[in-house]
Design a protein around this nucleic acid. Structure first.
Lengths: 339, 339
DNA sequence: CTGAAAGCGCTAACAG
DNA sequence: CTGTTAGCGCTTTCAG
């Protein structure tokens, strides 16, 4: 494998000249540029990226933090989709993606900080925001570029991209209420995640706005959101509170399980009970009945976050800012009017 | 940010000693090791990975090639799941994952080879195998470590991990035939991918073995496997050939769409038509009716492939070999006996 | 426009 | 067991 020096020697120029050709420096004659390029092609030369990173102190890698790879979380198509969006933009801007996987909060922090300190990445994309997030705090104190997909607690201290989950969730419930539903059960995951907090706030806001009482017994929080847990919770609550007319799942994945749990009790959707989800996974239009849900524009979320991060890395963007990606209620046939 | 030299100076030892401490060299006294480590902690030292990579000519990064990020492909939970498996093992062995995304065959090859030649990765994991695969050939001629998840055309030239798709597919069809189905439509994607070739072979083998004629008009191949395409194809074929009693989708994702397309024609699954899929996505047990499918053990597929690749990288494994991961027919309620 | 030379931060002989 | 030293392959002043 030839090095820059080999090229220089063969071309009869100095290494610095070759370097200038590689980096497309303007102060170089067209003639030598062509000559050097030809020899690079001949010898099949490719710059060693580690050498470059070492002197430039820059890796052109973006670190990607996905919630600890529990089976459930990772299986959510939300991550596939946002990964795709991030990948496309990063690639077009000359950045690679480094997946920072881990299986626990402590290990996650370690893994990320190691990549940061060892200069393996130029910035971090955090695909989640939670209460009292140690990783966020640490990255902030060392002043390392990072962007959060989600809402951090300190809204104007960080760079972030998010939906307006509160309003979107409020509209979901407005929609159900307008259809005559008053007993709406909501099932959500760990409220340490701000996304769950916000969607719950929206739920409550709608009730209050519509002069209805928020019934705590209809709010089902569960740290575990695997299939089995949700399945059981759903069946329990519908048995103890058969007056429920609608279920609101905090993600489409959760909604799917709710549907199955109810079907297995011989309840028909939407005739007996209405269901609504959140995220608009590709699957949601396919299942039966097609699921009414909120499109959160996952692709744009990833795209904007990546753009923002690259801006911060390149110091084009210097003050904390955020982008709100619009959402849209997608009405399908899993909800029905109550007489 | 302190460097190795800073540590050496402060500790009053040579740089090489510090290096030995970092690399856990045995020929070093416990005493100095403790002393140096203390100072590393004090100054918050972390080795610069680019410098290390440069001298070691090793990056400890695994390149990951996912089929061109078309919306459809990436949304398949198969990729989330295998990514998780790969991530877990890679991480435990001290490797990071570099996502090599692209949007087209030519660009893909470029992206991967650039990462290879610039020494950014130590090995490549290919999550697909296709006919006349240029990337595979190129990686092979430059003798770069890579492992294929899938069956390459030249079976004993490469390192690969796969299911026995032919046999598994044959058993799928055996199962349907045993239930009395003779008119079984199969819907599959691009047959340039060996996975599709194999699953089709299995389909044919079963028919022949059972002394039934393979009807070409029941084999529906489509390069595009997005929702809309499959939906239309399904409705077309059932209209033109209403004698079909079962559909076999080459992936669960395809099967979901088939179900919807048939439901929309007021056909009941499994009463009117039986459906079977392949892959056993997490969703498949949740939808209604729960889908009969083949569990391909995605996690093990990823795990074995990663293990193999790391073995090749570390030169523990030197001759082409392959692993077959077992599959299992998962019987659920989307298939029914014909009278 | 081009060259010489120093150095990014680390490892690996080789000596001792 | 530890120190000295010469690079790994590239970029970047500084001269010219």
């Amino acid at each position: 494998m030839p090095t820059l020096k080999d090229i220089a020697k063969k071309a009869g120029v100095a290494p610095s000249t070759v370097s200038r050709v590689i980096n497309n420096s303007p102060r170089i004659s067209e003639q030598t540029k062509v000559k050097v390029k030809k020899i690079m092609d001949e010898l099949g030369y490719h710059p060693n990226i580690n050498a470059r990173n070492l002197v430039k102190q820059r890796s052109h890698n973006l670190g990607l933090v996905i919630p600890y790879s529990t089976e459930e979380a990772f299986a959510d198509p939300f991550y596939s989709e946002i990964l795709r969006a991030i990948g496309v933009l990063a690639h077009s801007k000359g950045f690679n993606l480094l997946l920072l996987t881990s299986n626990g909060e402590v290990e996650e922090k370690k893994t990320v900080l190691k990549a940061v300190r060892s200069k393996q990445i130029d910035g971090v994309l955090l695909l989640r925001a939670k209460k009292d997030d140690q990783l966020i705090k640490e990255l902030n104190t060392i002043n390392f570029p990072f962007v959060i997909v989600g809402r951090p607690e300190a809204k104007d201290k960080y760079y972030w991209v998010n939906n307006d989950n509160i309003t979107a969730s409020e509209k979901v419930v407005d929609y159900l209420i307008k259809k005559g539903h008053h007993k709406i059960a909501i099932i959500l995951g760990d409220t340490n995640y701000t996304v769950n907090q916000d969607r719950l706030s929206g739920y409550k806001k709608s009730f209050i706005k519509n002069n209805l009482r928020v019934k705590e017994e209809l709010i089902i929080q569960s740290a575990k959101i695997d299939h089995q847990s949700i399945y059981r919770l759903t069946q329990n609550i519908i048995k103890t509170q058969p007056e429920i007319t609608a279920f609101y799942g905090m993600s489409d994945i959760i909604a799917y399980t709710i549907i199955q749990a109810l079907n297995d009790l011989n309840l028909k959707i939407p005739q007996d009970i209405s269901i609504i989800g959140f995220n608009n996974n590709p699957m949601s239009k396919i299942i039966s009945p097609p699921l009414t849900t909120v499109d959160i524009n996952t692709y744009l979320l990833g795209n904007k976050a990546t753009e923002l991060l690259i801006g911060v890395i390149n110091k084009k963007i210097k003050t904390p800012q955020n982008t709100i990606v619009p959402t849209k209620l997608v009405k399908r046939s899993s909800c029905q009017k109550i007489k």
